[in-house]
Design a binder for these strands. Structure first.
Length: 486
RNA sequence: GGGCCGUUAGCUCAGGUGGUAGAGCACCUGACUUUUAAUCAGGGUGUCGUGGGUUCGAGUCCCGCACGGCCUACCA
């Protein structure tokens, strides 16, 4: 059946060639996008000029001497009104050989039909690219998730709402850049292939670097190189780019994802909090024309100011545990076990606290919320509060129960930083940390003096999920990785 | 890693208790000069994901495998 369709289309292709009509001409210069023409028509002016438009044929309603074509370009749909006796001989031939999915150009006069549909009274139709494969069904589109991801082009052709998500993703990324550029941040690009994958604790992807004859890692964070640039004297830097974590895939995690990190010298986490609040709420409003958006069936209001929640108090409120009462991993483990939790004996205190957070606190954080002041065990790169050495100046932002930002006042004491790295190494396997080495050059940079600095990371994919009401991260990634079929 | 679910025509989906595989869209033929999920008349369609098993007989029951989805676990 599919073979029959393809054969019939190839026959039409041959027929075009026999008539001397190129099925894949070199170029076509349109005068307007479909959107521009539709707007012209809706403005209601008389005597509109001839226009040339283009796009993919998405529907063809044949009425005999007249037919209607839905033509979709990158902007939107426009209807072609085709009166066959008014077409040139060549255009008539093209209509005869037309299939859904073909890319065509059309020339004619814009007008409004009886039913008020903006249309073009077409005098010329030009084949721009003959399509050989049948499109998915027009009404339901493409629904099979696997096929949608494997052949995203079909998904985007047949599901306009998917096309819209990725337009919005692009707008969000532009907007992030605009917000930071306006504040005087310098956009930089740092290395993706690294001899040591630092700045986070996650298992890295390994690759082999032929020219250097050595194993390298794909970066798991942007942090350490951006701070080197703060040392170098760029006061405000950011990088927006892909990072790679060789971990599980689920609806909130994808091994390669897009991260924004920015660092501002002579600032602290309060400044970063203000930046997140302004930038994210602006972006939400730009994309949805409102601070209030729907996510996962709930209404979320991004209008500043957002809720501030002390982490220690949040754990007391939601989990019933005051971590100050359990100063080491063992006592915390004991307490968790007496409450009937299954506790991994390998886990450090930081990881146990993290578990409590994700289990009891995060599922409550629907409205935009800053969770403030983390235990030092969980945050090896953040600076301790002056009045409490066990707590660091760090916050994470949540909305829709998704973590969207992580920021702290950066630790710039090189000696303490070395201590923290050594602490961290104890609780992390070599496999998790790349080759388990400390980034000596980063420490060396700190030893030359890094100004007091505020740093911020935002998971762009999750921000897009929120702004477009998508519950799976793969719905905001154009080409999610799938296993090859065996 | 564990659990549940899915895989049938190009696409979206139906196929109680096992008995010759269905619909809509798309496609092909014809009618129709403002339609828009156009309409009307006619036409044909498949490795039922894959490999075994049970059975006279398997899309359907059983076991394995592949791919995918959701949940869970892991994961700064």
């Amino acid at each position: 059946m599919k073979e029959d369709i393809i054969r019939s289309r190839k026959e039409k292709l041959e027929r075009l060639k026999l008539k001397g009509i190129p099925p894949y001409p070199l170029s076509y210069h349109r005068t307007h996008t479909n959107e521009q023409v539709v707007n012209m028509i809706l403005e209601g002016k008389e005597d509109l000029p001839q226009v040339r438009v283009s796009g993919r044929v998405m529907a063809h309603r044949n009425m005999g001497k007249v037919s209607f074509i839905d033509l979709v370009d990158g902007s939107q749909k426009i209807q072609l009104y085709v009166k066959k006796e008014h077409l040139s001989e060549e255009s008539g031939e093209v209509i005869e050989c037309l299939d859904l999915g073909d890319i065509i150009g059309a020339e004619g006069r814009p007008f409004l039909t009886r039913t008020k549909e903006p249309s073009i009274d077409t005098s010329e139709i030009i084949m721009l690219a003959k399509s050989l494969q049948p499109l998915p069904e027009k009404w339901h589109g493409l629904a099979d998730t696997e096929k949608r991801y494997r052949q995203r082009y079909l998904d985007i052709i047949s599901n306009p709402e998917v096309k819209d998500i990725f337009k919005k993703r692009s707008q969000i990324v532009s907007s992030v850049r605009r917000h930071l550029d306006e504040r005087g941040f310098l956009e930089v690009e740092t290395q993706i292939l690294q001899p040591i994958a630092g700045g986070a604790s996650a298992r890295p992807f390994i690759t082999y670097y032929n020219a250097l004859d050595q194993n390298f890692y794909l970066r798991i964070a942007l942090e350490l190189h951006l701070k080197r640039l703060i040392v170098a004297g760029y006061d405000r830097v950011y990088e927006l780019g892909r990072v790679f974590r060789n971990e599980g895939i689920d609806t909130r995690h994808n091994p390669e994802f897009t991260m924004l990190e920015c660092y501002q010298a002579y600032a602290d986490y309060h400044d970063m909090m203000q930046l997140v609040e302004e930038m994210v709420s602006d972006i939400v409003r730009e994309i949805n024309h409102s601070y209030q958006i729907e996510f996962a069936g709930r209404l979320i209001d991004f209008e500043p100011p957002w809720k501030r929640l002390d982490l220690r108090q949040a754990l007391i409120d939601y989990a019933g545990i005051d971590f100050l009462a359990y100063p080491d991993a063992n006592s915390l483990k004991q307490e968790m076990m007496t409450r009937g939790f299954e506790v991994d004996p390998q886990k450090s205190r930081g990881k146990l606290l993290d578990e409590l957070l994700s289990r009891f606190v995060e599922p409550e954080l629907w409205q935009p919320t800053f969770l403030l002041d983390y235990p030092k065990d969980m945050s090896p790169l953040a600076k301790a509060k002056p009045d409490d050495p066990q707590i660091v100046e760090r916050f994470e932002s949540f909305a829709g129960c998704l973590e969207i930002a992580n920021a702290f006042t950066e630790l710039n004491d090189p000696l303490e930083q070395r201590e923290r790295f050594l602490e961290q190494l104890k609780e992390v396997t070599a496999e998790e940390q790349g080759d388990g080495r400390i980034d000596e050059d980063f420490l060396n940079a700190l030893e030359h003096g890094m100004p007091p600095t505020g740093g911020l990371g935002i998971g762009i994919d999750r921000l897009v999920m929120l702004a477009t009401n998508q519950q799976s991260i793969r719905e905001v990634i154009l080409f999610p990785q799938l296993k090859e079929k065996g």
